[in-house]
Design a protein around this nucleic acid. Structure first.
Lengths: 179, 179
DNA sequence: CCGAACATGTAAGAAGTTACATGATTCT
DNA sequence: AGAATCATGTAACTTCTTACATGTTCGG
C-alpha cells in the first residue's frame, strides 16, 4: 500500500501530470519506490475516485490531453496518518544473496562476472547519489527540518549502496582471482 | 523468477515436503527470499510439471498425504545457469525511507515511535543472525568453499541489519528527544 | 473418538510487469 | 503532410497476499 502514498508525496511536493510523475519516479522518489507509468495512471484514477486528489480544471479533458493533479485535504490527511502508522518492514529479498547460496550448492560458474557487473552498477548509483548530496546538501550549511529529513533519506540510499560495494568486494575476494 | 530457484536450492540442500520447505523458508532461505506455503505448493507443482523435480514414490499419493520432492538433473542444470545469468538488481523499495520523505512534507507526527519499533525489530534480527554466525561459523576455523559462500551470504544479512540500526539511530537523533 | 497438529491445497484479489493502442502537439 | 515526441490509457499476464477448505495422523 505504498504506491498511493508515494504519489501523494510527489504531488504535494509539486502538482504534476501523469507523465511528469513518471519522470520523477525515474529519479528522486523512484530511488526508493519505483513505479511504471501504467501503475501511476491506474493509481491516479483510484486516488481521484477516492477523493484524495483532483484533476485541475482544464479546457479539454480528452485522451492524449495533459491532465494535472493536485492533492485534496483528504489525501494530505491520509498521508499524515500513514507516516505514523504501524507497518512492519518487509522481509529482505535479494536475488543476489540467493544466487550466492545456490552457488554454494551447484558451483560458482559465471558468478564472478555477474558480481563485477553488479559492482559497476552499484558504483554508478553510489556516485549519482554522492553528486546529488554535494549539490543539494553541501557540507557545513545549516538547513531547515524538511531538508534535513530529505537528506536523511538520501543518506540511507548512499549507505545502502556503500553496503553493496563492500559486500561485493568481499565476495569477489572470496571467489579468488577468477575463472 | 527467483522463487523456483530458491526452492531448487533448498531441495538440493535437503529433499523435503512442501511443509518442511515452508518451515525452512521461515528461517534459513527465507532470510533473503521469503515465501508463503501457498506460493511454495504452487511452485512445486510447476517445477514438477517442468520436469525439474519429482515427488519421491510414496504408497498413497492422496490429499493430506505428505509428499517429498527431490531435484532432477534438469533442475540442477537450470539452477547452475541461473547462478551465472545476467540479472540486474531490482531498484530499492523501502516504505520506511518513503515515509521519511512524506514526513518532510506533512510532518513527523507518530514517526518517532514507529522508528523505535523498527529499531527493536532490526536489533532482534541482527542478534539472531549474530547467534547463527557464532554457532555455524566460529572465528578462526578453516572452512571449505561451500561453507565460506554460505558465510558470505550470512555476512550480507548481518551488515544489512547493521545498516538499518545505524540509519534508524541517526534518524532518531535527527528527530530529537521526542514528541 | 475427539481435538491438536500435520499436510496439502483452492479461490479471490491486489500489486507489479510487459506489450500494445490511441490521440495531441510540434517541428521540418 | 509526415515524423517525432508528448501524453494517456487498455489488455494480458505473473507474482504475491490473505482467507479459507479439506484430509490425515497421533496423543489422550
Amino acid at each position: 500500500m505504498s504506491l498511493p502514498h508515494a504519489i501523494l508525496t510527489a504531488l504535494l511536493e509539486k502538482p504534476s501530470s501523469g507523465l511528469e510523475l513518471t519522470r520523477r519516479f525515474d529519479r528522486s522518489i523512484g530511488y526508493f519506490w519505483s513505479a511504471t507509468h501504467q501503475q501511476i495512471y491506474r493509481e491516479l484514477g483510484r486516488l481521484e475516485e477516492a477523493g484524495h486528489i483532483r484533476a485541475l480544471p482544464s479546457p479539454v479533458p480528452a485522451r492524449g490531453q495533459r491532465k494535472e493533479y493536485e492533492v485534496l485535504p483528504a489525501g494530505r490527511e491520509s498521508l499524515r496518518e500513514w507516516v505514523g502508522a504501524a507497518e512492519d518492514p518487509k522481509p529482505l529479498r535479494s536475488a543476489l544473496l540467493l544466487r550466492m547460496r545456490a552457488a554454494a550448492v551447484v558451483g560458482t560458474a559465471g558468478l564472478r562476472a555477474e558480481l563485477e557487473r553488479h559492482l559497476a552498477l552499484h558504483r554508478a548509483q553510489f556516485e549519482e547519489y554522492a553528486a546529488i548530496e554535494e549539490r543539494d546538501f553541501p557540507a557545513g550549511r545549516r538547513t531547515a527540518e524538511p531538508d534535513r529529513l530529505r537528506h536523511l533519506v538520501l543518506r540511507g540510499g548512499i549507505e545502502l549502496e556503500r553496503f553493496w560495494l563492500e559486500w561485493l568486494g568481499a565476495a569477489l575476494e572470496e571467489l579468488g582471482p577468477g575463472e
